[in-house]
């Protein structure tokens, strides 16, 4: 292929091959696990505790977690409690817009299986619409639990145990 002069295509493939090699992949995973930017989408009342996570007492910024504007600049979505039908659509849209690799944490009993609202006619289970990496139990979970979940996710990323982007056919 290099002979027919498609330099650009060759370089792209070479880069893709190289990035999957051990040392570079480790550096990449190390980089990602310190830069988890949650998107600013408060889905329900657990948002009160998520706000407390970024307050001075719990200070999630220590772990590189700071809510950020716009799905295009973020790689991490934290489902804060119940997903109503309207909100589920928004959450899915936001998730689709985020660049790969992206991660989902479901916070609270409601995000696991409806919690206290299990028999409501207007809610959706988070795992039905999004691939959730970590679940946090509690109603609402304490901020420490949220931080622990983030650290679990970081460990998972550091192990390289996640889905990196869309797999190409070649």
């Amino acid at each position: 292929m290099i002979l027919i002069g498609n330099m650009e295509e060759f370089l792209r493939r070479a880069a893709k091959w190289l990035i999957e090699k051990k040392p570079i992949r480790d550096v990449r995973d190390w980089g990602i696990h310190f830069s988890l930017w949650p998107v600013h989408l408060t889905t329900a009342c657990c948002g009160v505790e998520f706000a407390a996570v970024s307050d001075p007492k719990y200070d999630a910024e220590r772990f590189g977690v700071l809510p950020f504007v716009g799905p295009r600049q973020t790689n991490f979505i934290l489902i804060e409690g119940t997903l109503t039908r309207k909100m589920a659509r928004a959450a899915r849209l936001v998730y689709e817009q985020m660049p790969e690799p992206k991660f989902v944490i479901a916070m609270g009993a409601c995000a696991i299986d409806g919690g206290i609202f299990w028999n409501s006619y207007n809610i959706v289970r988070a795992h039905e619409i999004l691939p959730v990496e970590v679940f946090i139990p509690g109603c609402p979970p304490r901020p420490e639990a949220v931080i622990q979940a983030v650290m679990k996710l970081q460990k998972k990323i550091k192990r390289g145990d996640y889905y990196y982007g869309v797999e190409r056919e070649d």
């Binding site: 039908r85 299990w118 028999n119 409501s120 006619y121 207007n122």
Partner: peptide, 16 residues
């Protein structure tokens, strides 16, 4: 939303 008038008693939801 397909089921109409959810607070009417005829609109049933699961109970524990």
């Amino acid at each position: 939303f397909e089921g109409v008038y959810p607070l009417r008693k005829s609109f049933k939801i699961k109970e524990e």
